[in-house]
Simulated scan of single mutants.
Amino acid sequence: MENKPAALLNAVPPYGHVIASEKWRETTLIHNLKGGGVKILFESELSLTDFHLPNKSCILYVSECDIVAGNNYKRKLVRYRNASSSFQGLVLVERTRLSEQFFSAVQKFVVFDLGLTLLPVSGQTEASQLIAQIVHSGSRENPFRRSSSSQLLDPLVLAVVQQVPGVGRIKALALLQNFSSLQQLSSATISELEPVVGPAAARHIHSFFHKHAAAGT
């Protein structure tokens, strides 16, 4: 039985649908998705992930309670990363007043230690908006790869890039025009960053990525 949920990571729902773990059935998130025209397919044995999307993305949701209570979420994240290698692994993390003090540690673990994409959300309402945005885009492309045809998904990418301290919306937009992924951005040299955001911000961004990379070694 332990291997069956991992196998379900190969399931891709039809466009306009989301496969959701049964535990989400009576939640605000599901209610909002249905209200937004998203069709839900519930799966009782979806234990390694919370949602599967039609663009071959899967989502693990880390709640405020998971973070504050230390609910073994790190172990679950590692299992999720290992099982979702053929999918775009996305982690939604509740960033609230209570969880804020732990957020930087969660961010480092998810992004730098595990190499997953993290998006902070204020709660289930915002999470439902992000999920619906992906589902309704109808794009078969990776939503976290720069594309002129995926403008609806740009806010997701912007949200990730703006997690770098000192990078606001304007600089994030400029960076995305020159670096198509977080991997490219994190490996960019100061001289490559300077023409995009200026010398001071370039040093700040480079220091941020390399400091966390060194801490993870």
Rank of each mutant, 00 (worst) to 15 (best):
N3Y: 13
K4E: 11
K4N: 11
K4T: 13
P5Q: 09
P5E: 12
A7E: 14
A7Y: 12
L9R: 04
A11K: 14
V12M: 03
V12C: 05
P13D: 00
Y15F: 10
G16A: 09
G16H: 14
V18A: 08
A20D: 12
S21T: 13
E22G: 09
K23I: 12
W24R: 06
R25L: 04
E26L: 13
T27N: 11
T27Q: 05
H31V: 11
N32T: 09
N32P: 02
L33F: 01
L33N: 04
G35W: 13
G37M: 06
K39Y: 15
I40T: 04
L41T: 11
T49M: 00
H52W: 13
P54R: 13
K56W: 09
S57F: 06
C58L: 03
I59H: 06
V62Y: 01
S63G: 00
C65L: 08
D66E: 09
V68R: 08
G70Y: 02
G70H: 00
N72L: 13
N72R: 11
N72V: 15
Y73L: 06
K74H: 11
R75E: 01
L77S: 00
Y80M: 09
R81P: 02
N82V: 14
S84R: 02
S85A: 00
S86F: 04
S86T: 07
G89V: 13
V93R: 00
E94H: 07
E94M: 02
R95E: 01
R97I: 10
L98M: 02
S99M: 06
S99H: 06
E100W: 05
F102E: 05
F103E: 01
A105W: 01
K108A: 06
V110P: 02
F112W: 07
G115N: 09
G115Q: 02
L119A: 10
V121P: 03
S128A: 08
Q129S: 14
L130F: 10
I131H: 07
Q133G: 14
H136E: 05
S137I: 03
S139M: 08
E141Q: 12
E141H: 10
N142S: 08
P143F: 07
F144I: 06
S147P: 08
S148P: 12
L152T: 12
L152D: 12
L153K: 00
P155A: 15
P155D: 09
V157A: 01
L158D: 13
A159K: 11
V160L: 15
V161W: 03
V161P: 06
V161E: 05
Q162S: 14
Q163W: 15
V164K: 04
P165W: 10
G166H: 07
G168E: 15
L173K: 04
A174H: 06
L176E: 07
Q177W: 02
Q177V: 13
Q177M: 07
N178R: 10
N178M: 00
F179G: 00
F179V: 03
F179A: 01
S180H: 12
S181A: 11
Q183A: 04
Q184H: 14
Q184Y: 05
Q184D: 10
L185E: 02
S187F: 00
I190Y: 02
E192M: 00
E194Y: 12
E194W: 06
P195Q: 07
V196A: 01
G198I: 05
A200P: 13
A201S: 12
A202L: 04
A202W: 01
H204G: 03
H204S: 02
I205A: 04
H206T: 01
S207L: 15
K211E: 05
H212T: 09
A213E: 03
A214W: 01
A215F: 00
A215Y: 02
